[in-house]
């Protein structure tokens, strides 16, 4: 039987209260959202926080709405809710593509968007999706709120820009007219973490690629991004040739490790192929009118 080590439990009633609790309980306290990464780690004693601050009651972190030219996703939005939200799926099909293959429906009922990003597992799917989308993270601390571009959010495996005593409150995703997006993942079995996965966002203006975002996960890509592949696409006419070149660049610049999910060269091969497919799908969606 797996049982976590002893800890103190507090339930926060507002963001301010959560920050106060975190300050009082000190650096060994952790936030618990869905708990579906943290509690399994505590059961295995891979994590032994002295205290947990439960943020599940914070309705103020559960918003999911368009504000101006951004989609704002509260940190406590559950996977299932993001997947069920028609507007989010219309604006950013990449988010629905990714959510559909994250874990299983029951886990998705509980796990949160913020928890996924803060867990910063090197195989997290949403990290790649938000990296492709060039989202912005909003972090709240005792001194107020600050924003961090998603590509500066992850500071290493299981490490983020969220300092002890701070909360991730929301993600802001810029809405780009003329864009299309997609996510492609290969997993060993339904609901598993990716062997490799790639997300793509394309903005096409007057028949050429004006902006490109490519996110990668599980393959050792710094900041879950593929900047060389993105650059190669700018100014190009959308088409198989450009996608294949971008895929090859992404594959060349990531650093997959061999593990129980597969050998490194296979993962590298997958990156090339998944980037190519995600780009083709994103372009097709942009072409179908894409966003407005």
């Amino acid at each position: 039987m797996q049982v976590p080590a002893r800890f103190e439990y507090e339930r926060a009633s507002s963001v301010g209260h959560a920050l106060m609790l975190l300050e009082r309980l000190g650096p060994e306290a952790r936030v618990v959202a869905g708990g579906h990464s943290l509690i399994p780690m505590m059961k295995l004693r891979l994590a032994q926080p002295e205290a947990l601050v439960d943020i599940n009651d914070l309705a103020e972190l559960s918003h999911l709405a368009v504000e101006g030219d951004e989609l704002v996703v509260g940190a406590l939005v559950r996977h299932a809710r993001l997947l069920a939200d028609a507007e989010a799926g219309r604006l950013f099909p990449i988010l629905h593509d990714a959510e559909r293959v994250i874990a299983d429906p029951v886990v998705r009922n509980r796990g949160t968007v913020g928890g996924s990003l803060c867990q910063a597992d090197p195989s997290e799917d949403l990290s790649a999706a938000f990296s492709a989308l060039r989202a912005t993270a909003v972090i709240q601390g005792p001194g107020g709120a600050r924003t961090v571009p998603i590509r500066e959010f992850h500071t290493g495996p299981y490490e983020t820009a969220v300092e002890p005593g701070e909360l991730l409150t929301e993600l802001r995703v810029p809405i780009r007219p003329g864009s299309g997006s997609a996510y492609q993942k290969v997993e060993r079995r339904v609901g598993d973490w990716p062997v490799a996965a790639a997300g793509a966002v394309l903005v096409i203006h007057d028949g050429v690629i004006a902006e490109a975002g490519i996110g990668l996960t599980a393959v050792g890509a710094a900041h879950f991004a593929a900047p060389e592949a993105e650059e190669s696409l700018i100014g190009q006419v959308p088409g198989e040739e450009a996608y294949a070149r971008a895929g090859a660049l992404a594959a060349a610049h990531c650093e997959p490790q061999s593990d129980q999910r597969g050998p490194a060269d296979y993962k590298r091969h997958l990156v090339g192929e998944l980037v190519r497919r995600a780009l083709a799908r994103a372009a097709e969606r942009a072409g179908r009118g894409g966003l407005r």
Binding site: Y9, R11, V32, N56, V107, N109
Partner: peptide, 28 residues
């Protein structure tokens, strides 16, 4: 005991969750 098999599923406020990965105090 690792949130994979689903034999522990119960409804929490009407939604199925894996109860091996939820603390009892979270259900208070």
């Amino acid at each position: 005991d690792t949130s994979n098999c689903g034999v522990c599923v119960v409804h929490l406020d009407g939604t199925p969750v894996k109860s091996c990965s939820v603390l009892a105090v979270m259900a208070d």
